[in-house]
């Protein structure tokens, strides 16, 4: 039985295994679709909407949509790029993203997406919300000013028994990701580093170290995000 399907993204033919999502199939075929909340190995939830594409003229999230034969998909169009840029701008104004003073600057996916879409200034007004910084854990700092609530830390950083170090607290506009004080007490350096690396922004930071990589050598200094996929 033939286990592959064919469809098109921006007129490029994509050959994919059955059962893959549009996002996975695109990446396997060297087509970059930007993501923020999506993370390899974690079931997609379509939360951030960065991976929005147009399938047969309808907006869908590529991370949650199974690829199907014959789909006609638009991704890299000015209409969709503007939508994605709008999402980045909303995230910038809804938190306090002071790039010049952030340890993650240069390695931050949100910032890299802003660079990709050439955000010179967000078109929305800055909200400057009042947020806290939790530095009570021995290994980590959780800066709520920069959190985009993507849940990547909650879903990827767990103990051997599967307990989560991070969880949601409060609701609505006060929703935030907090650290479990007991579990974080015994967190190893490796887990702390992984938590920092898996955070797309600078909301989870490893203590006692920062600004290690000089400007010019960081992940997104020279090449836009996604270059590793679409070259």
């Amino acid at each position: 039985m033939n286990n592959t399907i064919k469809f098109k993204i921006d007129a490029k033919e994509i050959v994919a295994e059955k059962g893959k999502t549009v996002l996975e199939a695109a990446r396997d075929n060297g087509v970059y679709i930007p993501t923020l909340c999506n993370f390899p190995g974690v079931p997609p939830k379509g939360g951030c909407r960065m991976c929005t594409i147009k399938i047969n003229n309808r907006f869908m999230t590529s991370c949650t949509t199974p690829a199907a034969a014959g789909m006609e998909i638009e991704s890299n169009t000015s209409e969709i790029s503007n939508l994605r840029k709008g999402i980045v701008e909303l995230l910038f104004v809804s938190g306090n993203h002071f790039c010049p003073s952030c340890e993650k600057s240069g390695n931050c996916e949100l910032q890299a997406l802003a660079y990709k879409y050439q955000m010179m200034v967000p078109k929305y007004p800055y909200s400057f919300p009042q947020k806290d910084i939790d530095a009570s854990s021995p290994k980590l700092i959780k800066d709520q000013n920069r959190c985009v609530l993507c849940q990547r830390c909650m879903k990827t950083i767990k103990t051997d028994k599967g307990e989560r170090y991070f969880s949601f607290s409060k609701r609505g506009s006060e929703l935030e990701v907090i650290m479990d004080p007991t579990l974080c007490e015994s967190m190893t350096d490796e887990v702390a580093q992984l938590a920092m690396d898996n955070c797309p922004v600078g909301s989870i930071l490893k203590k006692d170290i920062g600004f290690v990589e000089p400007i010019g050598t960081r992940k997104y200094d020279k090449e836009p995000i996604g270059t590793d996929i679409d070259g």
Binding site: N96, F98, C99, P100, S101, M120, V121, P122, Y126, F128, P129, Q130, K131, N145
Partner: peptide
């Protein structure tokens, strides 16, 4: 022309905006 982060978004002085 707004030149630089402070002109564009308040920059480091705006760290006081929540206080």
């Amino acid at each position: 022309i707004s030149l630089g982060e402070c002109a564009i978004m308040g920059g480091l002085p705006a760290l006081r905006n929540g206080i």
